[in-house]
């Protein structure tokens, strides 16, 4: 990495930025359309098979995108903490005709189990689409794609700067918290003690983050942030082929058909 010369680094910017993976090199917007369409299909088509199949497709896509293991781990955790509880609460609490068994006030019915599975799978399909999208696409590439489609660089600034501010402010807050500890201010112990530590740590950190916006505004203005000229872009995304837009359109059309089918009673 450090061996790359300036000329080599400069050269990389002369070409579209490829991540070396078919799926991850797609235009973030077409990818988003495709994934959202899949989630919509999962929600629109009744029954258990579709939502579960969509969830499985997401895992397969993650592997195709080269983020399989990490994504599977995240997704399973999401299933465990959200999906499972959604299922369990419904399975235990919803009334129905076909009672499997009862204990105390609780009654596990076939209807409850079905509703639980269905609801959990639909919610998880929606969650899966979102998490997969952000596993495949970085915020930077997404904003770049949006800017190319006419989104304001200011909108881009707000989002990208938010992530950086979260990192910076979080780091500062932890430094201050540790400094407080070192100065003997209690950050452990009873609830009141811990609650009392919250104010002196955070109020000054948040305040100075707010006052620093003044200098930030001036510094960015010096970088022509307020320039009325049309902006250009250093980093280029791979060209979006026509088939890619068509494919995205197809996904969207199928999703729309499923929704219409649901409401018009075809499905």
């Amino acid at each position: 990495m450090s061996t790359a010369t300036l000329a080599e680094v400069a050269e990389t910017y002369r070409h579209p930025e490829s991540l070396g993976n078919f799926l991850r090199d797609r235009n973030p917007i077409t990818l988003l359309v495709a994934l959202v369409s899949l989630a919509v299909v999962a929600a629109a088509v009744p029954g258990l098979i579709t939502p579960f199949a969509v969830c499985a497709v997401f895992v397969l896509l993650a592997f195709a995108g080269g983020v399989g293991p990490a994504y599977t781990a995240t997704y399973l955790k999401l299933w465990a903490v959200v999906g499972f509880i959604l299922f369990l609460l419904r399975a235990l609490l919803l009334d129905g005709e076909h009672v499997y068994f009862t204990f105390g006030n609780l009654q596990v019915t076939a209807e409850g189990v079905y509703e639980g599975l269905r609801f959990a799978a639909v919610v998880m399909a929606i969650c899966g689409a979102v998490t997969l999208f952000f596993a495949l696409v970085t915020m930077r590439r997404l904003m770049l794609a949006l800017e190319m489609r006419g989104v304001s660089p200011r909108a881009s600034y707000v989002l990208l700067a938010s992530f950086q501010s979260m990192t910076d402010l979080g780091a500062t807050a932890k430094v201050v918290l540790d400094a407080q500890k070192a100065r003997g201010i209690e950050t452990e112990g009873g609830l009141i003690t811990r609650a009392k530590a919250f104010f002196p740590v955070l109020a000054p950190v948040f305040l100075s983050a707010m006052t620093a916006t003044e200098e930030r505004a001036i510094a960015l203005d010096a970088r022509a942030f307020n320039s009325p000229a049309a902006h250009s872009h250093l980093v280029q995304l791979p060209r979006t082929a026509t088939w890619e837009w068509l494919a995205a359109g197809l996904f969207a059309a199928v999703a729309t058909a499923c929704v219409m089918g649901r409401f018009l009673g075809w499905l």
Partner: peptide, 13 residues
């Protein structure tokens, strides 16, 4: 426009 990212960061931190 510079306050918005700070507000978001404050929420998280």
């Amino acid at each position: 426009i510079f306050m918005i990212p700070i507000g978001i960061a404050i929420n998280f931190v």
